[in-house]
Amino acid sequence: MESRKVTFRIRRFNPKKDEKPYYKDYTIDVSKGMTILEALQYIKDNIDPTLAFRAFCRSAICGSCSVKINGYPKLACKTQVFNELDVYQTDTLTIEPIDNMEVIRDLIVDWDKAIGKMEKMRPYLIPDPQVVPDTLDEESKVYPEELKKYDSFTDCILCTTCFSVCTAVKHDENYGGPFGLARVYRFAVDPRDSLKKERSKVGYSFDMWNCVRCEKCADACPKHIAPVDGIMKLRGLSIEVGLKDNPGARHVMAFYKSLLESGMLNEVLLPLRTKGIKGVIENLPLGIKMILKGKAHSPIMKPIKEHETLLKVMKVAMEVE
C-alpha cells in the first residue's frame, strides 16, 4: 500500500508544567487512507504517551476530536492525512488546538465557554400547549415542509468547530456564537414551540447583527450545516416581530427600497437610511474623499432595463406564503 513519511508538528502545552506552548515534531510512516486521528493515536501509542487529545467515536458523530490542521479546524477522525498533504502540497502538517477557547492541555480545549453561551440562549423546546398534546397517546405532528425549515440545524453535534473559527466570537465577548444562534433559529421555526419568532429577541441581545458573514462556520462545519444561514433568518424574524429601529434592520430595508426604486443599491443614501443623520456625520470625511475621487454617484438613480419585471417578481415573492 502507498505510504509516505509525514512530519506532524504538534503544539504542546501543559499549563501545570510549561511556561508557554511549544511545537514538537513527530515523523511517522503514513499509509493511504489513514486519518489524522489514527496518526495522533499512533504517535501516542508508539512515540510519546504524554500527548493529549480528545477522541471517542471515530465516526464523526461525537464531535470531540476537532483540531486545527495547518490552521484550519477539522474533525481528526474524518480527515485523511493524504488529502491534507495534497491541499497544502507538503509533507509536514501542523496540528494545533482549535481557537476561541482556552487550552486545557495540548490539543484539548475547554468547551465550557462555547456551551455556556449556548445554554444562556435557552435553545430547547418550550412546548406550545395548543400544539403539543399533554399525554403520549397523541402525536405532535410536524409536517415535512415545516421540518425543512430547520432540519439541517438538528444535525449539529456540538463539536464547537464553528465557534472556534467565528470572527464575531473573536471580536465580541457578548456574541452568541454560530451553533448557539443557529439553534435559537431552529426552535424559532419549530411549530411545536411556544415562543417561536419571539426567540429572535434572544438572538438580538446576543449580538446576532454583529455576525460579519465571513462564512467560516458554514465552510468548517463537519456536518455541512450553515449556521450563518440560520443567523440571517433569525435576523429576518426579529424584523418581523418589530425590532426594526436598529442599523442592521434599517440597512436591510435600505436595500429593499433601493431595489424598488431603481433595481440597484443607492450607495449615496445608504448612510442616511441606515443610521440617520448620525450615519451621515460619521461617514462625512469618507464621503468627501469619495466625491473628490469621483467615486460618488448621483442620489437619483436611473432604473435598470426591465425594472418592471423586477418589481413584479418582488411583489409576488412578498405575497406568497
Binding site: M232, I239, V252, F255, L265, I304, E306, M318
Partner: peptide
C-alpha cells in the same frame, strides 16, 4: 437588465 443581487440581506426579509 441585471439588478442588485441584494448582497444577502434580502434573505433577511
Amino acid at each position: 437588465e441585471f439588478s442588485c443581487c441584494g448582497a444577502g440581506v434580502l434573505e433577511e426579509i
